Computed example of a mutant assay.
Amino acid sequence: MPFGEQPAYLRVADDLRQQIANGTLPPHSRLPSQASIRTRYGVSDTVALEARKVLMAEGLVEGRSGSGTYVRERPEPRRICRSGYRTLGESSPFRQEQTDERVRGTWEAHSERAEAGEAIARRLHIEPGDPVMCTRYAFRSGGEIAMLSTSYEPLRLTARTPVMLPEEGPLAGRGVVERMAAIDLVVDNVAEDVLARPALAAEARLLGAVPGHSVLVIARTFRAGSLPVETADVVIPADRYRVGYHLPVR
């Protein structure tokens, strides 16, 4: 195939996507049937089916059992703010993930002892199988779950200290920076990698999304100097939120 030439199913998907974007196919309207697509574009059933699959994978349409395929509502993405500024005394888990002071939210959390897998061990500079405290969060904003987060802290640093459980004890819910300061670990830098991937079924259920639709994942690690003290994966539905950064310039 010559460079720049699209397969037939992508050309069909492009045209249908444009109709969705310009309102010709508004939210909740039914997508043309497979037979209609075949006739209109002069393509095979296979091409028509693949074009519909593309739109479903992009989250533009959804199938309804026994009814057909419909255009999904596409709300304007809300902004989740990230910041390079971290201060003591103001870093609750929700504020840690959403730095826009105009946004208020709540969170639910559950902690349990676990063993570090290979990927988490690399991020924390520990050995696979080493004990960690795993805490799973669900962050709510405006009544809906906006973000999920799973964090890991090496128990070699926090075991038998007042901050071993992030959501219990004298500094419950105060966030990584303040909690680590209480055990003489000064968190002075944080690294974040942002990637996109399909939502897992369990994530989609909690986020009110469709399994397989895209989520943004922020892989974040707090460090005291070169020592990682916490790492987390923050999961955000890509069709409802965008991530913005506010960083200091030196």
Rank of each mutant, 00 (worst) to 15 (best):
T106E: 15
W107L: 09
E127G: 02
V54Q: 09
Q6P: 01
G142D: 02
E230F: 06
C81S: 13
R79T: 15
V187Y: 14
P237L: 02
E101Y: 11
A201Q: 04
G208E: 04
E178C: 04
R40K: 15
D239S: 12
F222P: 01
F139R: 00
L55V: 08
W107P: 00
A191K: 08
L124H: 08
G212S: 06
A172L: 05
P27Q: 09
V229Y: 01
A51F: 00
Y245M: 15
T24P: 12
Y85W: 09
G212Q: 08
S111M: 02
P228G: 03
G169T: 06
V215T: 02
P198A: 07
G89H: 09
L60F: 10
S151V: 04
P228A: 06
E144D: 15
P7N: 08
I20R: 08
E192M: 12
S149K: 15
I126S: 02
P128T: 00
I218A: 12
A159L: 12
G169N: 05
G143H: 07
M147F: 03
A172H: 01
G66P: 00
G66S: 05
A196Y: 07
M164A: 14
A48E: 01
Y152R: 05
S67H: 14
L247K: 08
S44A: 02
R102I: 09
E144P: 05
R179N: 13
P2N: 10
A182H: 12
E178N: 03
L185G: 02
V234E: 09
L25N: 00
N189Y: 10
L227I: 09
T87M: 14
A114V: 13
T46W: 02
D188M: 06
P131T: 10
E178K: 01
N22G: 03
G142I: 12
P131W: 15
Q34H: 08
L124V: 00
E58G: 06
A238Y: 01
D14W: 11
E5H: 06
L216K: 06
T161V: 10
G4V: 04
S65V: 09
R74Y: 07
E112P: 01
L247S: 06
A35M: 14
E115M: 12
V176N: 02
A181M: 15
L200Y: 05
E178A: 07
S36K: 08
R197Y: 01
R64A: 10
L25E: 01
S65M: 08
P166D: 09
G84M: 08
A35V: 14
G212R: 09
R104M: 10
R205M: 09
V47Y: 02
I20L: 07
R140Q: 10
R40Q: 15
S151M: 10
R38E: 14
E168H: 08
V61H: 04
V54P: 01
R113C: 04
W107S: 13
V190P: 00
S149F: 08
